[in-house]
């Protein structure tokens, strides 16, 4: 059962990721990116990480992608002419081939060093949100606070960068 869901969700994720890379209109890129995020959230639920899956839906698919959409519509990018890629496709092909060679290398490493069938470890008792929340507010309290300072710095920085000079 888990396998069937994995293959469905994995196919959705991979196909929409491929479309993000290959389609030319930025709006379509963003919409397929959202579909990819939803597929990943499904995979997270399959892996019993429900809290992270919901955060993925709300923060990534909800907030970050809408930010992308805002900027694309603000800059009117869909009407903006991007010049067609220049004459020689050598660099294009070199990039793609090197990337897929790296993927083959990673797969080979997994095949060689991963034990073939590792059973999943069942978490006892409490719900996933309780476990994550407890760890986040006890053991990882300091990184959590630092993360909020980082977010504040990002807010101030992006306001400074994007305001008009006049």
């Amino acid at each position: 059962m888990e396998q069937i869901f994995f293959y469905i969700l994995g196919a959705i994720t991979l196909v929409s990721a491929f479309l993000v890379v290959s389609l030319r209109r930025p709006i379509q890129n963003v919409l397929f990116m959202i579909l990819m995020m939803v597929g990943l959230a499904g995979l997270f639920i399959l892996l019993h990480a429900e809290f992270v899956a919901m955060v993925q839906l709300v923060v990534y698919a909800g907030a970050i992608m809408v930010l992308f959409l805002f900027v694309i519509m603000l800059l009117n990018l869909d009407q903006l002419k991007m010049p067609p890629p220049e004459g020689s496709h050598v660099r294009w092909w070199a990039g793609a081939v090197i990337a897929f060679a790296v993927m083959g290398l990673i797969w080979l490493a997994f095949k060689m060093y991963l034990a073939p069938e590792v059973p999943p470890v069942e978490q006892a008792g409490a719900s996933n949100t309780v476990v994550v929340g407890k760890a986040l507010f006890t053991t990882y309290l300091l990184p959590f606070e630092i993360a909020s300072v980082l977010l504040l710095a990002a807010i101030v920085g992006s306001v400074l960068l994007a305001r008009s000079r006049s």
Binding site: E2, F6, G10, L14, F18, P85, G95, I106, W107, F110
Partner: peptide, 25 residues
């Protein structure tokens, strides 16, 4: 099952790398 997830993750990462290298926007 673990390696299936890792293979999927590697493929997604590769697609991201390809996108960064070939897209101009």
């Amino acid at each position: 099952m673990l390696e299936h997830y890792l293979f999927l993750s590697a493929a997604l990462f590769t697609l991201g790398v390809v996108g960064v290298m070939i897209r101009r926007n």
